[in-house]
Design a protein around this nucleic acid. Sequence first.
DNA 1: AGTATGACATAGC
DNA 2: AGCTATGCCATAC
Length: 110
Amino acid sequence: MEEQGRVFQRIYALARQIPYGQVATYGQLARMAGNPRLSRMVGCAMSAAPDDVPCHRVVNRRGELCAAFLPLGRASHRLLLEMEGVPFLPDGRVDLPHCLWDGTTDCGAE
DNA sequence: AGTATGACATAGC
DNA sequence: AGCTATGCCATAC
């Protein structure tokens, strides 16, 4: 199996498993990926993530997306999540404690 | 082939 | 309570 980027593969898989209407943070994915320090790799992986990966559901600790989404339109991020039913705060950030992924939907582990 | 940097997070002070 | 320093894997030059 593609052992070249087992970490990336893991991150892609996790990001793909993010349920609709919920979001996950880099630390969360990194933690599930195997190491909480992989947070950077999560972002890096998202950078090279295929269209199959909903990178817009991956947000940072502040509940906002990364600078890479700015060129696409910060509003796009908000609209995308909002369209999925993700609540937003008056600060313009995502309501993490309200829509943060519990990580229990990772393969029928419910 | 090696070095440097990167879409962040955690820990220490 | 906020800032600095470190860590990780992969990609690019």
